[in-house]
Nucleic acid binder design. Structure first.
Lengths: 236, 236
DNA sequence: TCGACCAATTAAGTATGACGTTTGCGTCAC
DNA sequence: GTGACGCAAACGTCATACTTAATTGGTCGA
């Protein structure tokens, strides 16, 4: 499935996939004005298609559309930085390090609290999933199996966030996944994960299973603190 | 400016302001299919306008648009719950209590960390603003001045979040403002704010000013914990 | 000279009708 | 009963004409 990814969706989606990254990357700095007619010509589509793409960018607060003036790129501070697509575009673009740092800080705030809640709300099935993925991390933590390790790592944190029972936390799962993926990609592919971190994950799973909220929160805080420290080492 | 807010924007925006709340309130349960032609007739606008509104709803993951089937309302778990408009609609609708609780939990995770960061990054001007609003809270904490108190309270937390230096945190300011507003509206209008909470705000301002990150975080955690306890009392 | 008012221009907003494309679903043959 | 075929329904796209609002600039008057 998924073909080559070059273009199986609608035209407006394709325009969006071109304009969005361009704006978030700073190719069109805040204050830049885009004319719909010009865009229609540039992308060789009708004005209708452009307008639909603009509506979406507008809903992300990336641009505003005003009569007699055109489509204006809004200042960075007004962007909807929680929109998954904006996050994705920025992670793929120029200020990826900056975005990665913001998200890691957000993680450090949210995940410990989520783990504490999970200790009180996780179902037996979720606890089983947690230990399963923690074991998977242990099993793949040595011998250049970073890809397999990453899968378990992402799944582990996803289960923690969803087990918290808070919908806002649950929706951050994909963001955390993006951060973890980004970290792995930045790593030199020959360094195995930190054994201490692996141990912490196992302990978090156990704390949640036994309903020890305080311990789950503290341990998760250690994990996220480690992630931030790691980022400081690799940071440009 | 801003007129009366009844309807000075485009037609698509008006359609959105009608469809969005209806969907988030559950008037069109997940799985419901809407036809664009039908909507065009119902709102007495052209299909173009409907399509633009649908594109925005689609970008919020509230609906999906598929050929031969129509516009389908997506399950609740897939909604972009961080979109300010979705938050606003849900706060105004049926499951307001649920949304208020989710957001308060999010606050309890984010604000303490933000306060800790603010202690290290806040500029003198921001520190001045903080103490100013803390003093304002003290001044308005007695004698049925809840409205004036609310203004200072919202401003205080906004400055804390922006002073953290993290763009993700800063963008939560309006969400926190919505929560605080909601809390005040639920309060009986004759009960003055909790004096202990007021004191805590003053102490947070001082901790941030003196750069005591640990203390700022701990004190803010007390504030948010209090907010959650308060919610438990009033909760249905 | 300065200010206020008016008109022209420009680009987005809206409406409409036609055609293209996908795809669910029924039908028919084997 | 199963598979292939084809119709039709709904969105997707396009082209065009018209409407609306705001910027610009110029003119007129105090």
């Amino acid at each position: 499935m998924e073909a080559t990814g070059n273009g199986e969706k609608g035209l407006h989606a394709r325009v969006l996939e071109s304009l969005g990254p361009a704006i978030t990357a700073g190719d069109h700095p805040p204050g830049t004005v885009l004319r719909t007619d010009e865009l229609a010509e540039r992308f060789d589509v009708s004005r209708t298609v452009i307008r639909e793409a603009i509506r979406v960018l507008e809903s992300m607060h990336l641009v505003t559309s005003r009569r007699r003036v055109g489509v204006t790129v809004r200042p960075t501070e007004e962007w909807n930085v929680y929109d998954p697509r904006v996050i994705g575009w920025r992670l793929a673009g120029r200020d990826r390090p900056r975005q990665l740092r913001s998200l890691t800080v957000l993680r450090s705030a949210v995940e410990p609290v989520a783990a504490g809640l999970a200790a009180r709300h996780a179902t037996p099935a979720q606890c089983a999933e947690l230990t399963e993925h923690a074991m998977g991390m242990v099993a793949t933590s040595r011998g250049q199996q970073l890809d397999a390790y990453l899968v378990h790592d992402m799944a582990f944190h996803r289960v923690v966030l969803t087990s918290s029972g808070n919908e806002m936390f649950a929706r951050l799962a994909e963001v955390v996944a993006a951060v973890l993926t980004g970290r792995t990609q930045h790593h030199v592919m020959f360094t195995d994960p930190d054994p201490a971190a692996v141990t912490l994950h196992v302990q978090v799973a156990e704390a949640i299973r036994t309903g020890d909220a305080t311990r789950a929160e503290a341990l998760t805080r250690e994990i996220t603190t480690g992630a931030m420290a790691e980022l400081d080492v690799l940071a440009p």
